[in-house]
């Protein structure tokens, strides 16, 4: 597995929560949206263990609804706890990404010199 996909796997829960927080989606839509965001490094199916885990922790709920194309699909939306968890993950990511950016973005450091 490439480093990129390993890193993505660690933060995928947060990414899935973030996408669902914008609008309720079903599995296929969710994987499409992640890909469009440039996060296509993990196989599409990887979202399903994530969705199961998030449901188990009551961060999201699924509801059967007719989709735009017709057949019933399971649409996921965030619960109250889900929004709290998303906020926490976002702030933790901030705390991590700032120092890591400073450390690893060598190109930009050179510019500053």
């Amino acid at each position: 597995m490439s480093l990129r996909s390993q890193l993505l796997k660690g933060i995928l829960d947060g990414c899935v929560l973030a996408v669902i927080s914008k609008a309720p989606v079903y599995g296929y839509e969710l994987s499409k949206k992640l890909q469009d965001l440039g996060l296509g490094d993990v196989s599409e199916g990887t979202i399903y263990p994530v969705l199961l885990r998030l449901q188990k922790h009551a961060l999201i709920v699924g509801e059967m609804k007719p989709s735009e194309s017709g057949p019933n699909r399971k649409y996921y939306s965030l619960t109250q706890e889900g929004f709290v968890a998303l906020d926490r993950i976002s702030s933790e990511w901030q705390q991590l990404s700032v120092p890591i950016n400073a450390l690893l973005m060598k190109g930009e450091n050179l510019h500053e010199r």
Binding site: G27, Y28, S31, S43, E44, G45, Y48
Partner: peptide
């Protein structure tokens, strides 16, 4: 979750994708 993934695979198949592209090269790990 099985029917959800089946729906997903059917949508992906329409776009010419294979099950291995959807569930990864090693479906057992998945």
């Amino acid at each position: 979750v099985l029917i959800e993934m089946l729906d997903h695979l059917l949508d992906a198949q329409e776009e010419g994708k294979t099950a291995n592209q959807v569930f990864g090269e090693n479906p057992q790990i998945f």
